[in-house]
């Protein structure tokens, strides 16, 4: 086992456990959110190990940094210590949930993990994920989608201000 594999396995284990924890801590939204932040944070490190520096740091900045703060904001406005008044009855849905879950796991395994089994090492160069190379591609080949996405975001910002402000 190479050092790279050890690093990947450690990161993947943390990310995976954190992702499970998000669901497992369903009755404590703050902990679930915290684990989601951890998951995003570690995912950024996995991007780093793949040479995608810009993507990794964007992941940490955008997801772990900005969005999660807002998420925590929302969670804290809820009444956390009250249990949900609706209690789920046992109507055999649990069995169905397990069945569908297993089916999904098999599909994911077959379509994602099996093709990846034969992959060894990264075929891309060191320059692949640097800000320079990403920027060059973004402003030449993909300039139209990029601009459309930025205009979309701008519309979102303006729209949110329009909705939130009573008096402009």
């Amino acid at each position: 086992m190479t050092a790279n594999q050890v690093v990947f396995l450690v990161l993947a284990a943390i990310a995976g456990l954190a992702a499970v924890g998000v669901v497992a801590f369903g009755n404590n939204p703050v902990r679930a959110a915290l684990l989601l932040v951890l998951n995003f944070f570690v995912l950024g490190f996995i991007y780093f190990t793949l040479g995608a520096q810009l993507l990794g740091i964007s992941q940490i900045m955008v997801y772990a940094g900005a969005i999660m703060v807002l998420f925590l904001f929302v969670i804290m406005m809820l009444q956390l210590h009250q249990r949900s008044p609706i209690v789920e009855g046992r109507e055999g849905r649990g069995v169905l949930a397990w069945l569908f879950g297993l089916a999904l796991a098999v599909v994911v395994f077959a379509s994602v993990i099996v093709p990846l089994m034969s992959v060894s090492g990264s075929p891309i160069g060191d320059e692949y994920g640097t800000p320079q190379s990403v920027g060059r591609v973004l402003f030449t080949t993909y300039v139209l989608p990029f601009e459309i996405a930025s205009v979309l975001l701008l519309i979102g910002i303006v729209g949110s201000i329009l909705l939130a402000k009573r008096r402009l």
């Binding site: 964007s58 772990a64 640097t130």
Partner: peptide, 13 residues
């Protein structure tokens, strides 16, 4: 290569 972005990302944490 991402030195300054790193500063922004970590300070946002």
């Amino acid at each position: 290569d991402i030195g300054l972005l790193y500063v922004l990302a970590i300070s946002s944490l």
